[in-house]
Design a protein around this nucleic acid. Structure first.
Length: 560
RNA sequence: GCGCCAAUAGCUCAGUUGGAUAGAGCAACGGCCUUCUAAGCCGUGUGCCCGGGGUUCGAAUCCCUGUUGGCGCGCCA
C-alpha cells in the first residue's frame, strides 16, 4: 500500500470517529442522516498543511450549526495519531487542516528504492482483461499525423491500464474490406494502365498519392515480363492482384513504421476475417433477438431510435453487402462475446464521434453493453509557414508518421502528442516542431535523468544502503519527495480519466523539482551521512523518472 | 436545424468528484558556471477565466441561455 493511501485512510477513519463522538457528546447532531463521504485534498498553499477537509462545511445543512462550530467540535475530538498527524487546525470558513509528521515522506524514498520498476503499479484491476484498439489506420496508404497522435495516446493508455493491473491486448483493426479497398484497387489499376501507355482516366475519387504509382512500379520490377500477362487479365482479376500485393506491402510498412514509433501490437484484426468466419451473420442474429431489426426498401435496418439515437441505420444494403456499421458491430461482439474481454477502449478521431452512440446502442441490444469506452481525440491541425495545411489521403498531400519521426524523433513526437489531453484541439506547427526539437519538454525530463546518472556514476562503489533518511529536511528535498509520493495517483487518474497527458505533466513536475533541488543543495557533499541520504533520494527520483518514461514509451538516457 | 468537443495571461495550455490569493511553459528583461551535466536554476507581470442568468456558505469548475471556432449528422469508412 502506498503511503498516501494509508494516511488518507487513517484520516478518514479518525474524522469518522470524531464525528461520532461529537454527536454522542451533543456538540451537534446529524439528525438521523449519514455522514457524507469525507473529501480530502492537498491544499495548494503550504501554510494550510499537508491535507485538508471541507467536511465541516458540508454538515451545516444537516446539523443546522455554523461550519466553524462544527469544525471546532471535529478538530477537538480528533484522536491524535502518533507518528502520522502532527497538528490539526481550523482555518478560513471551516476547513480542517492536518499537518503530518515529516517521517511519512522519507518513507517514500525507501519504498521507491525497494519497489524499483514496480513503484507506481497497483493491482486494482487484477484479473481483468482489457482490449485497447488504436490507430486502425486505413491500409490503403501511409499513416498521417492523426494516426501519430492516436498512436501516442493509445500506447500510453495501454501502458496505464497495465500499471493498474489489467491484462492488456493492444489491437489494430485492419480495414481490409469494403469500399475503400475497391477504390484502392481502381486507383492501382488506373496507374498501371497509364504507366503502360494506355490513355486511361484516373478515377475522380481515387487515391492520388505517389505511393499508388510506386506500388505498381515495384510490382512490375519484381515481376519482370508480367506486363503483357496483366494486360490480358480481366480488370477485376488484375485489381485483385494489385490489391493483394499493395495491401501486404502497406501492412509491412505499417509494422515497421510503428516499431520505429515504439508501438508493438498483440493483434492485427482483419475486417475481412469477419466475413470469412461468419461473424457478421452471427452478430446479425444476436441483434435480431432484440426485436429492433427490420427490413425496408430491400435493406436490413437496426432501429437505433429505440436506443435514443436520432435515426435508424442500415445494417445490410439493398445489394446484400453489409455496411461498415454492421462490420463494426460484429467486430466488437467478437471482442466481448467471442473473445470475452472485460473491457474495451477505442481511440478514435473526432470525425468518428457520430458513430459512438449507434455502436453502443447495438452492443446494448446484443447484450454486450457497458464494456466499451471510446476516447475521442480532436484532430490535428497542421500549420506550416503560418498557414493551415489541408491533409488528405485521397489527394496524397500529407506529412506521414515516418516524416514526423525523421524530423523530431520518436521520443519528442510521443511526448509532444501526450502533452495535451486527447480532447484538446491540437495545432501542430511544423516550423516550430522542427525548431522545438531542442526545446521540447521531453529533453527537460531526460536531462534530469542524465544528470542523476552522472552524479551516481562519479560515486561508484559508494554505499548508501544504511542512509538515515530523516536527514532530508530542506524545503527542496521535501518538495521533491512530495512529487515522488504522487506518482501512483497520477497513474490511477490517468487510467480512470483515460488521459495520458497526466503522465507527461507529472514527469515535467518531477524533473522540475529535481532541477530546483540540484541547484539548491549539493548532493555529493563532504558530510557522509547527508550524502548517503541524498543519494538515496536521487536514486529514488531516477527510478520514478524511469518508470514514467517506461509508461510514456520514451528513452531515459544516461548521458546527454 | 440537431449532436459532440472546445473558449482561461501576448502565444500554447493546466486547473472539472464545486474550496482558501486562478497556475505552468514559451516569448521579454535581469541575475547565477574556480566543486556533482547551464539542454539547468533564481527573480521581474500580465487576467471581463467568451457574454448573460441561475444553484450555494463558496463557481473557471455544476445548470440554463446566447456568441465564436472545430468536427459530425450517407445503403462512405
Amino acid at each position: 500500500m502506498y503511503a498516501r493511501e494509508n494516511i488518507e485512510q487513517k484520516l478518514r477513519e479518525g474524522l469518522r470517529q470524531a464525528a461520532e463522538k461529537a454527536c454522542e457528546a451533543g456538540d451537534f447532531s446529524l439528525n438521523g442522516q449519514e455522514l457524507p463521504e469525507i473529501e480530502l485534498e492537498v491544499p495548494r498553499e503550504r501554510e494550510f498543511g499537508d491535507y485538508s477537509t471541507n467536511l465541516a462545511m458540508q454538515l451545516p445543512k444537516i446539523a443546522r450549526k455554523a461550519p466553524r462550530q462544527i469544525a471546532e467540535a471535529l478538530a477537538g475530538r480528533f484522536e491524535p495519531i502518533p507518528g502520522v498527524v502532527e497538528t490539526v487546525e481550523i482555518a478560513g470558513p471551516g476547513f480542517i487542516n492536518f499537518r503530518l509528521d515529516p517521517s511519512w515522506l522519507t518513507q517514500i524514498v525507501a519504498q521507491v528504492n525497494e519497489m524499483g520498476g514496480d513503484y507506481g503499479k497497483t493491482a486494482r484491476h487484477a484479473g481483468k482483461t482489457y482490449n485497447l484498439e488504436f490507430i486502425s489506420a486505413n491500409p490503403t496508404g501511409p499513416m498521417h499525423m492523426g494516426n501519430a497522435r492516436g498512436g501516442a495516446i493509445g500506447d500510453v493508455l495501454a501502458e496505464l491500464a497495465e500499471w493498474t493491473g489489467y491484462d492488456v491486448t493492444r489491437e489494430f483493426y485492419v480495414n481490409d474490406a469494403g469500399n475503400q479497398i475497391e477504390k484502392f484497387g481502381d486507383s492501382l489499376d488506373a496507374r498501371f494502365r497509364q504507366l503502360t501507355g494506355e490513355d486511361f482516366p484516373f478515377p475522380e475519387d481515387g487515391y492520388q498519392g505517389e505511393d499508388i504509382t510506386e506500388h505498381v512500379k515495384e510490382y512490375l520490377a519484381e515481376h519482370p515480363g508480367s506486363e503483357e500477362e496483366l494486360k490480358a487479365q480481366p480488370p477485376e482479376q488484375r485489381r485483385k492482384i494489385f490489391i493483394d500485393y499493395a495491401l501486404k506491402k502497406n501492412l509491412e510498412r505499417m509494422h515497421s513504421d510503428l516499431a520505429d514509433y515504439g508501438i508493438q501490437y498483440d493483434v492485427w484484426f482483419s475486417e475481412q476475417s469477419l466475413y470469412e468466419t461468419g461473424a457478421i451473420d452471427k452478430a446479425l442474429d444476436m441483434l435480431k433477438k432484440s426485436g429492433s431489426v427490420y427490413e425496408e426498401d430491400g435493406a436490413v435496418w437496426f432501429r437505433t431510435t429505440d436506443y435514443g439515437c436520432e435515426k435508424d441505420d442500415v445494417l445490410i444494403r439493398q445489394n446484400g453487402i453489409p455496411t461498415y456499421y454492421m462490420g463494426d458491430i460484429a467486430y466488437h461482439l467478437n471482442k466481448f462475446e467471442t473473445r470475452g474481454f472485460d473491457r474495451g477502449v477505442n481511440v478514435w478521431g473526432a470525425d468518428h464521434h457520430g458513430h459512438i452512440a449507434r455502436l453502443q446502442a447495438a452492443l446494448d441490444a446484443a447484450g454486450a453493453g457497458g464494456k466499451l469506452d471510446v476516447v475521442i481525440m480532436q484532430l490535428v491541425k497542421l500549420v506550416q509557414d503560418g498557414e493551415i495545411v489541408k491533409m488528405s489521403k485521397r489527394t496524397g498531400k500529407m506529412i506521414t508518421l515516418t516524416d514526423l519521426i525523421q524530423m523530431i524523433g520518436k521520443d519528442a513526437a510521443r511526448f509532444f502528442f501526450n502533452l495535451r489531453s486527447p480532447d484538446s484541439h491540437f495545432e501542430f506547427d511544423l516550423d516550430l516542431a522542427i525548431r522545438e526539437s531542442n526545446e521540447n519538454p521531453v529533453f527537460y525530463v531526460q536531462y534530469a535523468h542524465a544528470r542523476i546518472c552522472s552524479i551516481l556514476r562519479q560515486a561508484e562503489g559508494f554505499d548508501w544502503s544504511d542512509a538515515d533518511l530523516s536527514l532530508l529536511g530542506e524545503p527542496e528535498e521535501i518538495a521533491l519527495m512530495e512529487v515522488l509520493s504522487r506518482f501512483y495517483e497520477e497513474i490511477q487518474a490517468g487510467e480512470e480519466k483515460m488521459d495520458p497527458s497526466r503522465i507527461t505533466r507529472y514527469a515535467v513536475d518531477l524533473a522540475s523539482a529535481f532541477h530546483t533541488f540540484y541547484n539548491a543543495v549539493r548532493v555529493n557533499t563532504d558530510e557522509i551521512e547527508l550524502k548517503k541520504a541524498r543519494f538515496a533520494l536521487i536514486s529514488a527520483v531516477r527510478q520514478v523518472l524511469r518508470n514514467a518514461s517506461e509508461i510514456l514509451g520514451i528513452n531515459a538516457p544516461e548521458r546527454m
